[in-house]
């Protein structure tokens, strides 16, 4: 049985999905690749936008998301983040 993902891992997965689509992706595309429910994804996207990891781009037809430099930095440093959080019990 696979272990449940931590918050940090879910954030990483969402950011990776956005980054792999050259930085512009629709919510439904993130939903299908991130293995989250719609409500959970909405909550995470809201948090990531508030914390400047993602930006929301709205046009007349729809909205898309792009990753920011902070978001890319998170991905680059994810191993350090994960190691620190695991070592000091900050992984939930």
């Amino acid at each position: 049985m696979t272990r449940k993902r931590s918050r940090l891992e879910i954030i990483r997965d969402i950011l990776e999905v956005v980054k792999n689509r050259n930085g512009k992706i629709k919510p439904t595309q993130i939903l299908s690749k991130s293995n989250l429910s719609y409500q959970m994804l909405e909550a995470y996207l809201k948090e990531l936008i508030e914390k400047d990891f993602l930006i929301e781009i709205r046009n007349k037809k729809n909205k898309t998301y792009a990753i920011t430099e902070k978001g890319i930095n998170y991905l680059i440093k994810f191993n350090l983040i994960q190691e620190f959080s695991d070592s000091f019990g900050l992984t939930k």
Binding site: L8, I11, F53, L80, I81, F84, F88, L90
Partner: peptide
């Protein structure tokens, strides 16, 4: 280092730690 991690994650638990 916890503060450094906080600047990357912006997660409350890292800040409080």
């Amino acid at each position: 280092y916890a503060n450094k991690i906080y600047t990357l994650t912006k997660q409350k638990e890292h800040k409080f730690f």
